[in-house]
Amino acid sequence: MSLKVRPTAARLSRQELAQAVARDIASGSYANLGIGQPTMVADYLTPEQNVTLHTENGMLGMGPKAAAEQVDADLINAGKVPVTELPGASYFHHADSFAMMRGGHLDVCVLGAFQVSVTGDLANWSTGEPDAIPAVGGAMDLAIGAKEVFVMMSLFARDGTPKLVQECTYPVTGLSCVTRLYTDYGIFHIVDDAGRRRPQLVEAHGLEPAEIQERLQIDLVGM
């Protein structure tokens, strides 16, 4: 299955990346957006998409960030930022909130990453450096629990090292869990290719597909 992918002129900005993720969230989904960059995706979801946002600290139907006069210390998101409540919202305790994830009730989650492997292993909770203080939060539960796991990250680290890799060198968060990878230079679907999970490039931005494959030093499906 060969896909003709024509690259756009420039790589995607962070805003365009968030927009691309938002566009791909199916209408009517229950979704969890991780802290950091994934939070931006909410800005690009349209009312017509009718997406219900879950926050790990016990809420479905989370609304936008609270304006100054709306701030309520009892109403925050996973990043501890004051948020608002939409009609149809519900509150529940932590064990229920994580049962929703683990039990496969969320349609999609969007997470950031240090690395993603060709088979969809995710590394996003620890750099493994000796002096680093690790923090995992709900990342491992989301990674294995949501039906679809979308990751958004830059394709290359600041020093140019690829972050889509043959095998993660950072400590993993979950195995074979990433379904789609959204990066500045391209969008990948991790697909089943003859019984093996492998990335397929579905959009290229600012680089030719052949150049992306060359710089990543990995085999992409259909290339």
Partner: peptide, 29 residues
């Protein structure tokens, strides 16, 4: 350090008299 869902479920199990449980969270990590 405990994944957040494991923390919540381990607390729930303690309160509910559950001896232990198998969870997919954290497998292989």
């Amino acid at each position: 350090l405990v994944p957040q869902g494991n923390l919540a479920e381990r607390l729930r199990a303690a309160g509910a008299g559950i001896g232990a449980f198998f969870t997919p969270t954290g497998y292989g990590t």
